[in-house]
Design a protein around this nucleic acid. Structure first.
Length: 281
DNA sequence: CAACGGACCTGCCTGC
DNA sequence: TGCAGGCAGGTCCGTT
């Protein structure tokens, strides 16, 4: 499920329930996620979740040392969570029955529990004691698409001299953080750019337009994701904005909503790519 | 360096 | 109905 809007929706849904809370119990039911869950995660009880934030599609829980009442040595650092392809977080009562693929539980002093669910186990829970932005997974990540650091000029700098298809460039986290397959397709359609076009051959004006459409489509999806936040205690974090509003993604052989041309599916960078031959060049 | 293919997993859908 | 094959919203890592 998770593209950046779902991760942001998850962040907003979970944050009010866990920020500032002390962790009272941790259960790792399955340690072999994308990488093994490190022992520092098991040692979290007694510590406090000071802040919850997002960088690209990573969720970051900064952990403050435990109080004198806690057991074990006080520790300070950051839990790095990624939802992979199929991961989700939800807040639930600790005595609620667990489902298959519920891999990791954090019980909080509020009496509620944060549960990580991930059938494909491409997600991860990692620990770093250093500044999270220095972690190898985060160190080389490009600007947040919704920050002021991301614009057509940033895209142009990354595209200069590159022959890669522009679609592949958008999925490269070093260029821009957290743009996934769906929104890369959608933004290219909105900007009227063919996904296979060599990145370095796009004009500054077209890259400006593309950057703006990336911001628009992600911002819009986050707004829509927000509509399910109310029910976050019950929902598993999958927002319902999907499908209906997509212009090209997963719409092969269906008519373009703008020009009626049949949507085409191709593969680039080993990923399915959908576009309208009528309005993308 | 850039670019590419393979890897990690389960579930769901299609077609034979 | 069963089963094989293809495909899926991510992204890291090793090899050219």
């Amino acid at each position: 499920m998770p593209e950046l809007p779902e991760v942001e929706t998850t962040l907003r849904g979970v944050r009010p329930h866990i920020e500032g809370r002390r962790i009272t119990d941790v259960v790792v039911r399955r340690r072999n996620l994308r990488w093994p869950v490190p022992p520092e995660i098991d040692a979290l009880p007694g510590s406090r979740i000071a802040t919850v934030s997002r960088r690209a599609k990573y969720l970051l829980l900064t952990i403050a040392p435990g109080t004198s009442a806690s057991t074990g040595p006080p520790r300070q650092g950051t839990v790095i969570i990624h939802l992979g392809m199929s991961g989700s977080l939800r807040i639930i009562a600790p005595d609620a029955p667990h489902r298959p693929h519920d891999h990791l539980f954090l019980t909080l002093d509020s009496g509620l529990q944060l549960r990580f669910h991930d059938p494909r186990r491409f997600g991860c829970w990692l620990w770093t004691a250093a500044a999270p932005e220095e972690h190898p997974l985060l160190r080389n990540i490009g600007p947040e698409p919704l920050s002021i650091d991301f614009d057509g000029a940033a895209l142009a700098a990354a595209a200069r001299g590159r022959k890669r298809p522009i679609k592949d460039l958008l999925l490269d986290g070093r260029v821009v953080a957290g743009v996934g397959n769906i929104y890369a397709c959608e933004a290219l359609h909105l900007a009227g750019i063919h996904p296979k076009r060599a990145a370095g051959r796009l004009s500054a004006a077209r890259l400006d337009r593309l950057a703006e459409q990336i911001r628009q489509v992600l911002g819009h999806a986050i707004e829509r994701g927000g509509t399910t936040l109310r029910d976050f205690l019950r929902e598993d974090g999958a927002p319902g904005y999907f499908k209906q509003e997509l212009h090209v993604y997963d719409r092969e052989h269906q008519p373009c909503r703008r020009c009626e041309t049949s949507i085409r599916r191709i593969v680039t960078g080993q990923r399915s790519t959908f576009y309208c031959p009528g309005c993308q060049h």
